[in-house]
Design a binder for these strands. Structure first.
Length: 763
RNA sequence: GCACCAGUACCUUAAGCGGUGAAAGGGCCGGACUUAAAAUCCGGUGAUCCGGGUUCGAGCCCCGGCUGGUGCACCA
């Protein structure tokens, strides 16, 4: 810029220029695993193909991208890529609304979202992006289904689903509005239907154990750990074996080990393996069957309406008091899983309600709640108790009566019964021209899909027409980005044997919203299963993610954003007005990741101003510098002469200021580095801004001291600004790189984007 | 109802282990520049939800309350 004109800050232009350059250079292509530098797979969340990137995505990916760019700058090899979660109900509903096929719908949505993400300048490796609804990808689901089926971790059971008689279809929970169908508003009922289940219960104990290891590693933030603990639902207590009149025993659990004498009843889950033994009477059994087949009415899901069956039987009290009535109720499941528990009204509100409802008060409350227990009952504990643990996390259904999902690779043959599709026949292709209407499952009406031959006897058979819930797809979605795209179409056996998986897994860090707790939990579970089965045996602790950050959501006016409230922030509009760098910086600056971000314009304005000031200031100093450089080349410029004098007169007068500037730069880089390592992005951004203030302060002080900058002063200033640009790259990459380019001395073209160590080096 | 999180100026956020006079930005007011407005620059303005406790010392730790948010209620 030796002509002296200073380009004004125009985000649209410079961002387009940088993005074009990155694209040309293939700047974010995943490095080959041949190298021996440290590797990090940074896992962003897999977005639903909803159609638009919202501000929550911007936050999530800005955090992940800052971390990814930081790691690259430090010389690490980074895999930063994701696949779209493109199956499932939202897409199906979107397609119905848009009157197009789901596959067309998700393709269109994904293309648009990719465009938005590119415009934001995120450093994803786009070559590895995929859609879970592509046949080459959903065969992973089918393979996983069969693998888990073989291992006994997928099983067929009977469960209740919401059903609309008018529309002749099963409904997802979100399609039920106040107990009525979302389309016809007729009442919905729960029906009994065979479903496929995932047995996560087999691994809850190990998940629990590993969780403390993850906590000890320091790589999991508190939010993420808390969510894992919550999903696990661990309850510590004691269990004891109680005797019935006929000598039969039942193991019961209670979290209130110190209040056994207050027990007033025993509740058994309808899912308890021995429940039949306790509900043996014909009449009681009939009611149990009724409970099972009718499911639970939506209105009956609170303690005062929860179904209860009095079995008429009793068990001895653990402390020698009155015998305890035995009831069966699903209220047990939600809190302790499929088990039997002591009902202790004094310690548990639900128990109190149940006791009041079901049992004759005279029988139950022989001891008034506030009185001490009667003599003898505490003293003579007759039943020994032992420490025990229960988990709320439970097996869940993975099949859906929907047409936009992975076909379940199962056929039903009259002769052979249920037969899995052999792996070499995968994938079972989902017809793409299916048009869901919301009534019934159109897949079931497609003869060309349903009619098939039995893989075992060759006779005629029909396919399973339920599909897998997209939650099941999420179990493996984090794996395929580790596979080079050229290998993607290979057999899964080949892919699973690739060194790439061993090189990239476990993921160094997953960065996702705090609502991902269930996904992560189930991914952790399945990883352990695949370790034991074989394909992921190299993950010894069965943990797919070494580290995890769950950030909170973006809210507005103190509440969740929703169209209804009219407080939705549109990223496109913001980008158009302020540019991607400003928006990215603003979402990082406005709150630390673990806290919900209350959207405000002031953060945007602050960041825009910061970037503009940084731009103007830096460009002016760079221009001045190169002007001085050219002039001092000439023999007799008057300003060069003046500078000569200044140098002779006062270079050492400002040496302490240059020293201090260097100190400032060092500590700033130190702090920013530490912040980034801990993903404390908002603190890092603040420190970047503070560094800018200090650089300007330095210049002011030098001028106050001597009236102008000597060559050494200027050189230090330029070096500091260049360093500032380098540490800004993770947060506002476009402007940062443009400034670095502008800082280059004439004749140089290669910018140094590596992470600074801290000391100011003159160019 | 239960669980978790949060409450700092008019607004949005800061304040490593408890440690000077609680820090920024926006807003607002005044000034500079401008025919005027916007933008930009300079200056000014002002706060720890309530009640207890621990401590030499509390925005930070403990207990209780109030307010707001999020999650959960057999649900993936």
């Amino acid at each position: 810029m030796s002509d002296g004109t200073i380009p004004s800050y125009d985000p649209q232009t410079i961002e387009a220029r940088r993005q074009h350059a990155w694209h040309e250079q293939g700047a974010f292509r995943t490095p080959d695993i041949a190298g021996d530098r440290p590797r990090k797979y940074i896992k962003p969340s897999a977005p639903f193909t909803s159609g638009n990137i919202h501000i929550g995505h911007v936050r999530s990916y800005s955090i992940g991208d800052a971390y990814a760019r930081f790691c690259r700058a430090r010389g690490e090899e980074v895999l930063f890529a994701f696949g779209f979660d493109s199956f499932g109900l939202p897409a199906e509903l979107g397609a119905i609304a848009g009157k197009e096929s789901p596959s067309a719908w998700v393709d269109r949505c994904a293309q648009h979202m990719i465009g938005q993400l590119r415009r934001l300048g995120f450093s994803f490796d786009w070559e590895r992006t995929f859609m879970s609804s592509d046949a080459v990808m959903y065969r992973w689901s089918q393979w996983l289904f069969l693998t888990l089926l073989d291992a006994g971790l997928v099983y067929r059971g009977t469960g209740s689903v919401d059903w609309c008689d008018t529309c002749q279809t099963t409904l997802a929970t979100i399609q039920v509005e106040n107990g009525t169908c979302w389309r016809c508003h007729d009442p919905v009922r729960l029906i009994q239907r065979p479903q496929w289940y995932l047995r996560i219960s087999a691994y809850v104990e190990e998940n629990d154990r590993r969780l403390s290891e993850l906590a000890a590693s320091g790589m999991w933030d508190e939010n993420a750990l808390a969510s894992q603990r919550f999903v696990l639902g661990r309850v510590d207590g004691v269990e004891l074996d109680l005797c019935a009149e006929d000598g039969a025993t039942l193991t019961v659990f209670t979290p209130h080990s110190g209040a056994l004498e207050l027990a007033r009843f025993v509740a058994i889950s309808p899912k308890h393996p021995e429940v039949e033994r306790w509900a043996g009477d014909a009449e009681v059994h009939e009611r149990l069957e009724e409970l099972r087949s009718g499911g639970l009415e939506r209105s009956a899901r609170e303690a005062d309406a929860m179904p209860l069956i009095d079995t008429g039987r009793t068990l001895s009290s653990p402390t020698g008091g009155d015998p305890l009535p035995v009831i069966v109720s699903p209220m047990v499941d939600g809190r302790f899983g499929a088990t039997a528990v002591l009902g202790i009204p004094e310690h548990d509100r639900t128990d109190a309600v149940i006791a009041e409802r079901l049992l004759a008060p005279a029988r139950v409350f022989q001891t008034p709640p506030d009185q001490p227990a009667p003599e003898g009952s505490t003293a003579s504990q007759t039943v020994p108790s032992r420490a025990a643990v229960r988990y709320r996390a439970n097996d869940f259904t993975i099949s859906r009566q929907r047409s936009w999902g992975t076909p379940i690779p199962i056929v039903y043959c009259e002769k052979c019964g249920t037969a899995p599709v052999p792996r070499e026949q995968l994938p079972v292709i989902l017809p793409l021209d299916v048009k869901p209407t919301g009534a019934g499952n159109p897949l079931a009406e497609r003869a060309d899909f349903v009619e098939t031959t039995c893989p075992e006897c060759g006779g005629s058979a029909r396919r399973e027409t339920d599909t897998l819930d997209c939650h099941f797809d999420a179990l493996w979605l984090w794996i395929p980005v580790c596979v080079p795209s050229r290998e993607r179409e290979q057999t899964l056996e080949h892919i699973l044997a690739l060194e790439d998986l061993r090189a990239w897994l476990p993921s160094e860090r997953v960065v996702a919203g705090s609502d991902s707790g269930n996904f992560v939990f189930d991914q952790r579970t399945v990883t352990k299963a695949l370790r034991d089965i074989g394909p992921l045996e190299f993950l010894e602790d069965g943990e797919p993610f070494a580290g995890c950050l769950f950030h909170e959501m973006v809210i507005s006016d103190g509440r969740k954003m929703s169209k209804h409230l009219g407080n939705v922030v549109d990223p496109d509009e913001l980008i158009e007005r302020h540019g991607a760098d400003t928006i990215r910086l603003a979402v990082l600056y406005a709150a630390r990741p673990q806290r919900s971000l209350n959207w405000s314009d002031s953060a945007v304005q602050r960041c825009r101003r910061f970037l503009k000031q940084l731009w103007d200031y830096s460009q002016a100093r760079f221009a001045l510098d190169s002007a001085a450089a050219t002039e001092s080349g000439g023999a007799n410029g008057s300003s060069a002469e003046a500078e000569q004098t200044a140098t002779e007169m006062g270079a050492d007068k400002t040496e302490h200021l240059r020293k201090r500037l260097e100190q400032w730069c060092e500590t700033a880089v130190e702090k920013i580095t530490e912040d980034l390592g801990e993903l404390e992005m908002h603190s890092a951004v603040r420190n970047v801004m503070r560094l800018f203030d200090r650089i300007r302060d330095y210049e002011k002080r030098v001028i106050a001291k001597r009236g102008s900058l000597c060559a050494e002063d200027r050189e230090a200033l330029i070096a500091a600004l260049a360093m500032l640009a380098r540490v800004l790259i993770p947060f506002a990459p476009h402007i940062a790189e443009e400034l670095l380019i502008a800082s280059l001395p004439p004749g140089t073209s290669e910018i140094d984007t590596s992470w600074p160590a801290g000391e100011l080096v003159s160019r």
